[in-house]
């Protein structure tokens, strides 16, 4: 197979498309996908990677003008193929599992807070290993919006990937990331307000 420069790849995969370049890129994507998926897919690996490679090729050709040349072209193309494949695998894995199911059905020990009152009315309570969990529990219950709470529990407790949670919440991965980032920042501040300690300090105390 010819080694090509980035410029050669882009030129040969732009109209009019060079068939040999397209065939070579397809072969590269297939090799990469087979290697990265061989541990995850037990049957029909070749057929499944063919489908992913085909979908990826279409995306690559469609977005080739966005390639900025800051990496090797083959790295850029392979990241698109990996993204296509892994997004689809995550979708298949989680498609029949509802958000409600994942949020309402914990698999481990459910936490029962000792203090069910809103600690916002009881600021600066003394922090001990015993009540750190109460504080975090109450922060989650009282400081977050319903959507923030649902997303965080689905991801951290249910193990659902963020793109799948986003799909089920009728939003997109970026918007959900921002929603969760805002939630984490809010909890971070709330923890400091309630305990006078940073999250690092609380964790260190907890791990003593």
């Amino acid at each position: 197979m010819n080694r090509r420069t980035n410029e050669e790849w882009v030129q040969q995969l732009s109209d009019p498309i060079d068939d040999q370049a397209l065939s070579d890129l397809r072969e590269i994507l297939l090799r990469g996908l087979r290697a990265s998926l061989s541990n995850r897919i037990n049957t029909d690996l070749d057929a499944i990677t063919e489908d992913f490679a085909q979908d990826a090729l279409l995306k690559i050709l469609k977005s080739i003008e966005t390639f900025r040349g800051e990496s090797r072209f083959t790295t850029w193309a392979q990241k698109i193929a990996i993204h296509v494949a892994y997004t689809e695998l995550r979708r298949r894995r989680w498609k029949d599992i509802s958000l409600q199911e994942i949020v309402e059905t914990p698999e481990g020990d459910e936490y029962t807070p000792a203090i069910l009152t809103d600690p916002a009315t009881n600021p600066e309570q003394e922090v001990s290993q015993n009540n750190i969990f109460d504080i975090i529990y109450n922060m989650i219950e009282s400081d977050l919006t319903e959507r923030q709470r649902t997303a965080i529990i689905a991801i951290l407790q249910g193990g659902m990937p963020i793109d799948q949670v986003a799909e089920k919440m009728d939003t997109n991965r970026n918007a959900l990331y921002k929603l969760i980032h805002d939630a984490r920042k809010r909890l971070q501040q709330s923890l400091e307000d309630r305990t006078g300690l940073t999250a690092h300090e609380v964790l260190a105390m907890f791990e003593q």
């Binding site: 914990p106 481990g108 459910e110 219950e141 529990i153 407790q157």
Partner: peptide
Amino acid sequence: MKIEITTLKKVLK
């Protein structure tokens, strides 16, 4: 919403 102990640890981390 039911929250597990391990989830509270993950949130803190």
